[in-house]
Simulated scan of single mutants.
Amino acid sequence: MKTTVRSERRRRSGARGFTLIELLVAIAIMAVIAVLSWRGLDQIIRGRQTITNAMEEERVFAQLFDQMRIDARQAASDDEAGQAAISVSGNVLQIVRELQLPGAAPRLQVVRYRVSEGRVVRYASPPLGTVGDLRRALRGGEGDGWSALPLMSGVGAISARMYVPRVGWTIQMKDVQGAITEADNNLKVPQLGSAPLPRSVTGLEVSVGAKSLARPVVRVFLVGE
């Protein structure tokens, strides 16, 4: 009996807990693991945010250029517009386009893209049914009845070039007007009198520069196709 008690006392006296140094080492290891885990999680969150921002910018660019593509494709002819259907003046791109409304005769519409306070805004006139309405819309500003649709923010500048057959890419409206004058003169030739008036501008190149971009984004559109 005495032997058993002594053995139990020896066993109890040999049992011990963690020392202070061991606890400090364990806490240090857990702290390192926590910091590494936090950094990894932070990188994942930052990466996800970067991808989300890039996808949003891509969506905004797609919306802007898709609307420009539709307007260029539905551009009226120069004789319908009574002048160049597509014109560029500074940071303003103007397109005279055909407008099809359900249950109504075809109309024309004047569309302008301009940069206002770092944002690309698409201004569109109401449907124009007469030559007088068209002339007033072309001469005036974006007044009553015009719609304004903001398409993209953070834009530094927007510029455009026009492709004129036999001339090439140009930003000069005199080249466009020269093509219109040549087409009008060709109508006086008997052999070409019944031919349709060709477009003075057959291609449109639009460049958009934004603060978040290292270089401008450029897109090319066919006119009237």
Rank of each mutant, 00 (worst) to 15 (best):
M1H: 15
M1T: 11
K2P: 05
T3E: 12
R6F: 07
E8N: 10
R9A: 13
R9N: 14
R10L: 14
S13T: 11
R16C: 00
R16N: 05
F18E: 00
F18K: 00
I21R: 06
L23H: 12
V25Q: 05
A26E: 04
A28K: 10
I29M: 15
V32K: 01
V32R: 00
L36H: 13
W38H: 13
R39N: 11
L41H: 09
D42I: 00
Q43S: 15
Q43D: 06
I44Y: 10
G47I: 07
R48N: 12
M55K: 12
E56P: 05
R59H: 08
R59I: 00
V60H: 02
F61V: 00
A62D: 04
A62L: 02
L64Q: 03
F65D: 03
D66Y: 02
D71I: 15
D71Q: 07
D71F: 04
A72Q: 07
R73W: 08
Q74D: 14
A75E: 03
Q83N: 09
A85N: 11
S89V: 05
N91L: 04
L93C: 06
Q94H: 00
Q94G: 03
Q94Y: 02
I95M: 05
I95E: 03
R97K: 05
Q100S: 10
Q100E: 06
P102F: 06
G103F: 13
A105L: 15
A105W: 08
P106W: 11
R107D: 04
L108P: 06
R112I: 06
V115D: 08
E117A: 14
G118F: 07
R119S: 14
V120S: 05
V120M: 01
S125N: 10
P127N: 08
L128R: 07
G129M: 02
G129P: 06
D133S: 08
R135P: 00
G140S: 15
G141K: 10
G141Y: 13
G143H: 15
L149G: 01
P150S: 02
P150M: 02
M152A: 06
M152T: 01
M152L: 08
G156S: 08
A157T: 06
R161V: 00
P165F: 05
G168Q: 15
G168I: 07
I171M: 13
I171R: 09
D175K: 01
D175M: 00
V176H: 02
I180F: 06
E182Q: 14
A183V: 08
N185E: 12
N185W: 13
K188Q: 12
P190G: 01
L192V: 07
P196N: 03
V201H: 07
L204M: 10
E205V: 11
K211R: 09
L213F: 04
A214Y: 04
A214R: 09
R215D: 15
V223Y: 04
